[in-house]
């Protein structure tokens, strides 16, 4: 690696490339790649058939569907409402705006278990909110979605906010003077500018939701085949000292997330091409 770098070395006026690049690689290896590769190393002690059997166990398959499905739905909900919150916070002046702006970060700061317990009590059949619905929310996939939406909220708001802030007013005025209605201006001019940030926010919220454990276990009810999320299956296996089984499932999750994130990045790359040539 070092050799090939030296050979290709070009003069640049920005200093410190080798230092920062070297540190980046070391850091990424230690913090991300090494732990992740341990998952694969661990799993290698399994035979192929054992591995296949573990990951295709009906309980595991049901949990993949649940985890990916709920994380996806929660991500979508967050894109919609997160964008709206960012819009309100940037576009309008009202008393308490700063406070609401601060509230947005709360799901980050709160220990996830606390959030989980709070949400479970609220949405339980006899809880403050749950009592108004004649169907169950806690202990169903619906409850999981609510918990995942809660913890993913800040991502979309915080990625869309700066873009909205920097949006030039002139572009909207140009649209209005060309005869567009406010709605047309919003849909055709403002939203397209926000899409890249919304997608980034979505992928962050989605990946966070995929790995979420603390808040979900309380509200999910954890019924096998119905409300058991993949991280819980991994936890259960760990508690039974089935480390290899846990890492096998983890590999499936990891590859799934990787493929989805890659796909999202691809969409984003195609979109950004318009803006920055």
């Amino acid at each position: 690696m070092e050799l090939s770098l030296k050979r290709r070395k070009k003069t640049t006026i920005i200093p410190g490339f080798s230092l920062t690049f070297g540190y980046t690689m070391l850091y990424l290896s230690m913090i991300v790649l090494l732990p992740l590769s341990m998952i694969i190393v661990n799993t290698l002690s399994m035979s192929w058939s054992e591995f296949y059997e573990t990951i295709t166990h009906p309980r595991a398959v049901a949990s993949y569907k649940l985890s990916f499905g709920t994380a996806f739905v929660a991500g979508l909900i967050n894109v919609f409402f997160g964008t709206m919150i960012a819009w309100v916070l940037i576009r309008y002046e009202f008393p308490g705006r700063k406070i609401i702006d601060g509230l947005v970060d709360l799901p980050f700061a709160l220990p996830t278990a606390v959030a989980g317990i709070a949400l479970t009590t609220l949405y339980a059949p006899n809880g403050w909110i749950g009592q108004f619905f004649d169907f169950k929310i806690s202990y169903t996939p619906l409850g999981i979605i609510i918990a995942l939406t809660f913890i993913g909220l800040p991502f979309v708001v915080r990625t869309v906010q700066p873009v909205l802030q920097n949006l030039s007013k002139e572009v909207e005025e140009a649209s209005a003077s060309l005869g567009a209605t406010r709605f047309q201006t919003f849909v055709k001019i403002i939203l397209p500018e926000l899409y890249p940030a919304m997608i980034t926010g979505f992928s962050l919220a989605f990946s966070r939701a995929l790995g979420e454990y603390g808040s979900v276990v309380f509200i999910a009810g954890n019924m096998p085949m119905k409300t058991e999320i993949t991280p819980l299956i991994i936890m259960t296996k760990l508690e039974q000292y089935d480390y290899v089984g846990a890492t096998a499932i983890a590999i499936v999750m990891l590859s799934g997330s990787f493929i989805i994130l890659l796909f999202i990045n691809f969409i984003q790359w195609r979109m950004n091409r318009k803006f920055y040539h």
Binding site: S168, E173, A176
Partner: peptide
């Protein structure tokens, strides 16, 4: 009357083109 109904063409200093 709103800008939309004035039938006025406006050209901005920094163009204000729709970049997408």
């Amino acid at each position: 009357v709103s800008p939309k109904e004035r039938k006025v063409g406006f050209v901005f200093q920094h163009y204000a083109l729709f970049r997408h």
